[in-house]
């Protein structure tokens, strides 16, 4: 009987020893590789101040499956001053995109009050509004063709700084892109 117990204890310790040795020599699991998030190239339009027209700039943004996410990325990119000296961002840094929603073929952009007075003059308003419209339409599926601007959820007539009757370009209705405002590089 004593012999049997001694064999069992010996087996137990042998097993324990085996487990320890196995663990000791087991290859270390490889550290998790920090996977780089996939990125995508987008095009945004800035003012070429010497030619007074829009000019295309390529930017790299994280990949996103959501159209609204892509739109938010584009607006953020439009605020970033381009590196090239004669190019200028037209979107003021305090312009906040409150929300984005899609309906039929229209992208609705709901901005804060900073949209009012963000640009002035016929040409100033045109180049500002279409820098946004062109930049969005160029980077989202072709199903979306128009961009509707809202201020705090409401339609305004124009972005005139002295009230909505003081501007020039009507933003009561959605705007389509204007590629003729874009110059060659």
């Amino acid at each position: 009987m004593k012999k049997t117990i001694a064999i069992l204890i010996a087996c137990f310790f042998l097993g324990l020893l085996g487990a320890v040795i196995f663990n000791y020599f087991r290859p270390e699991p490889a550290p998790p590789v920090q996977e780089k998030l996939p990125e995508e190239e987008v095009v945004v339009f800035f003012l070429n101040s010497s030619r007074y027209q829009l000019q295309e700039v390529k930017r790299v943004v994280p990949e996103t499956e959501h159209i609204t996410g892509r739109i938010e990325q584009i607006i953020a990119e439009l605020k970033e001053e381009p590196e090239k000296g004669n190019l200028r961002s037209l979107v003021p840094s305090d312009l906040e995109l409150r929300s984005v929603f899609l309906e039929e073929d229209i992208v609705y952009l709901d901005f804060n009050e900073a949209l009012i007075g963000a640009a002035e003059g016929s040409s100033g308003e045109m180049i500002f509004l279409y820098s946004i419209v062109n930049s969005l339409i160029a980077n989202i599926p072709e199903d979306y063709k128009l961009v509707k601007f809202l201020v705090n959820g409401e339609t305004v007539k124009t972005i005139g700084p002295y009230g909505e009757e003081s501007g020039h370009i009507s933003i009561e209705y959605p705007l389509g892109p204007r590629w003729n405002l874009v110059g060659s590089q």
Partner: peptide, 23 residues
């Protein structure tokens, strides 16, 4: 007129846009 660049210059005439074939 007025624009974001002080270098913008010239006169121009605008008409109401009416592209029948696009959005």
């Amino acid at each position: 007129n007025s624009g974001p660049s002080t270098r913008a210059t010239g006169f121009e005439v605008f008409t109401l846009s009416a592209e029948a074939s696009d959005p």
